[in-house]
Simulated assay, not measured.
Amino acid sequence: MRRAERDLKRDGVHATVTPPPSLPAGARRGVEFVLRRTSPTCLERCLVLQTWLAAQHVPCEIVVGVARDADRVRAHAWLDVERHDAVALGYSELHRLPPP
Rank of each mutant, 00 (worst) to 15 (best):
R96V: 13
D80M: 11
A70C: 14
G65W: 04
T38F: 08
R28E: 14
P100C: 02
H84P: 10
H95K: 11
G90M: 13
R72V: 06
V13P: 06
Y91H: 06
R72T: 00
Q56K: 11
P21M: 13
S22E: 13
E93N: 04
T38D: 07
V13D: 09
P19I: 00
P24T: 03
D11R: 03
T18G: 06
R29Q: 06
V81L: 06
P20T: 09
E93W: 11
R10H: 02
Q56W: 03
D85W: 03
R36N: 06
L53A: 01
G12P: 00
T18H: 07
C46M: 07
P21W: 08
E44Q: 13
Q56R: 02
C60P: 01
P19F: 08
R6S: 03
R29I: 01
L97Y: 06
E5M: 03
D7Y: 03
D7M: 07
V63A: 13
W78Y: 12
H76C: 02
R37L: 04
F33D: 12
P21E: 09
T38H: 10
A15Q: 00
L97M: 04
C42H: 06
V34Q: 12
L53K: 10
R3A: 14
A27Q: 15
T16K: 09
R72Y: 05
G90A: 04
A27M: 14
P98C: 07
R36E: 09
S92T: 12
L49V: 04
A77K: 11
R74K: 15
A54G: 01
T18L: 14
R2C: 03
V13Q: 10
C42Y: 06
L8E: 08
E32C: 08
G12L: 05
V63G: 12
M1F: 10
V31P: 12
L23H: 15
L89D: 10
V81I: 04
D80H: 07
H76P: 11
V81A: 00
P100A: 03
W78A: 08
R36W: 03
H95R: 10
Q50S: 04
T41N: 00
D85Y: 00
A55Q: 02
V13C: 11
S39E: 04
P40R: 06
Q56G: 08
P100F: 08
E32G: 12
A27V: 13
L89C: 08
D69C: 12
D69S: 13
V63Y: 11
C46V: 05
A54K: 02
H57E: 09
H84M: 09
H57N: 11
P40Y: 02
P100R: 00
G26N: 15
V66M: 15
G90R: 11
A70N: 15
H76W: 10
P100H: 01
V58K: 07
P24D: 04
M1C: 14
G90Q: 14
D7N: 05
R10M: 09
T51E: 05
S39P: 02
A88M: 00
V31R: 04
V34E: 10
P19W: 05
A88G: 08
H14V: 03
L23V: 12
Q50W: 05
K9N: 00
P59W: 01
V48G: 01
T16M: 10
D71K: 11
V58A: 01
V64D: 15
A75Y: 05
P20R: 05
P98Q: 08
A77T: 10
L35E: 01
R10N: 00
V48I: 01
A27R: 06
L79Y: 08
V34Y: 14
R74G: 10
A67M: 14
E44Y: 05
L89Y: 09
